[in-house]
């Protein structure tokens, strides 16, 4: 068999990939992608968590070096992002566990739990940071 002509190659239908102009962004797909991105970000962020613990173990001088970065604006932004990613992944993880148990597959329920997860993650993050700054 000879290879197909360039014209025939062009006319073939494309399998639509999830990212691109083929699908309209929806809450369900976006939350799914964000869940995975948060998972990856949390893995990277856990290295910083280890840095914190090593700094404590190494003594007050190395802790000063850590605290300088933690108190800086980028340190605060990273911690805010990490805490939200952690709490979002937690809330959406519970949603995933419900799906694993066979609950919540109908479209209205999937959307409702999606909104609940977004709201709960924001509320929990706000509560944690409120606690951090009030106390």
């Amino acid at each position: 068999m000879s290879s197909p002509a360039p014209q025939a190659r062009r006319d073939r239908p494309l399998s639509p990939f999830m990212i691109g102009p083929y699908y309209k962004p929806q809450l369900t797909s976006m939350l799914s992608i964000v869940h995975r991105i948060c998972g990856v970000a949390l893995s990277v962020g856990s290295v910083l968590l280890v840095w914190w613990l090593v700094a404590i173990a190494a003594g007050p001088w190395s802790y000063v070096a850590f605290a300088e970065h933690a108190a800086a604006w980028y340190g605060q932004v990273l911690m805010l992002g990490w805490s939200w990613a952690l709490l979002y992944h937690l809330c959406n993880g519970i949603r995933h566990l419900c799906w694993d148990l066979g609950w919540g597959y109908s479209i209205p329920v999937v959307y409702r739990t999606g909104y609940v997860v977004v709201a709960a993650s924001l509320l929990l993050t706000g509560a944690a940071w409120g606690l951090a700054y009030v106390l």
């Binding site: 605290a67 933690a70 709490l87 944690a128 940071w129």
Partner: peptide, 16 residues
């Protein structure tokens, strides 16, 4: 995770 986040949030994190 809930324990960790809310425990660390109550900590004065900059104080060794």
């Amino acid at each position: 995770t809930l324990w960790f986040v809310f425990s660390v949030a109550r900590l004065p994190i900059l104080s060794y």
